[in-house]
Amino acid sequence: MTAAVRMLRETTKSDTAQPIVEVRHISKRYGSSVEALRDINLTFPTGQLTSLLGPSGCGKTTLLKIIAGLLEPTGGEVVVKGKTVTGPGPERAFVFQDFALMPWASVLRNAAFGLELQGIDKKKREETARHYINQVGLSGFENRYPHELSGGMRQRVGLARALAVNADVLLLDEPFSAVDEQNRRKFQEDLLRLREVERKTLIFVTHSIEEAVYLSDRIVLLSPRPGRVSEIIEPHVDRSGPPDLIRRNPAYLDTVEEIWHGLRDYAD
């Protein structure tokens, strides 16, 4: 199966890949003084994982929330599958930095919540939710509550919820920043495996260079105050081997080093 999947990926990676999300001249101001984003132009090809990487204050989360339709841009537009974004839509699903799980609801209900809001009947939505709870490696925890889970497990619920609504684009806002290091690595590996199975387009916000290089097909580097696109990097890391090998791959290490040199000027 993996061979076939990889072949498919090779073809989508070619230059003819249709952009599923286009960001056109997006700018965002808060009040009159703070300029968070200035004239951002980006395309996100179908089926790829693109990271938005940059130091804090570069507006990467703001950009992601504008794509999600949770924030209104001051200028410009976002086009998803040919349609201009005016708010959240069924083709996009969001994974939150702080998980945004309902503490009063079980894992199962949390994972099924997107479907619940669509009015899908209980039996059907729980069946779908169970499938994705299993996919993210949480089967057996369906009736637990969020406070009984570790940070990593909670974010897996958040991911299952986003997968369950079957959106084309997953928007992940620093999903692993509240997860401890070991679990983060495991989760990153699982995410790579999952995207081969689920065939989604992923837009991923992170401040970790290693994480971005490890996961991404493309990395968009943003510079701070105001946020602008400073560089787009395609790491070309061969991810066919075992995870530990990837992290020792020279291409991986070189890219991390290269990005760090580009970013070190912004360190406080």
Binding site: P88, A100, F113, L117, Q118
Partner: peptide, 25 residues
């Protein structure tokens, strides 16, 4: 606020936001 944003991003309407998120929380 993040729960409310979650509800909106998963296409919850105003009614659902109030009864499924605001009141329980």
């Amino acid at each position: 606020p993040s729960l409310r944003a979650m509800c909106r991003s998963f296409l919850g309407n105003r009614r659902q936001e109030i009864f499924k998120i605001v009141l329980p929380d």
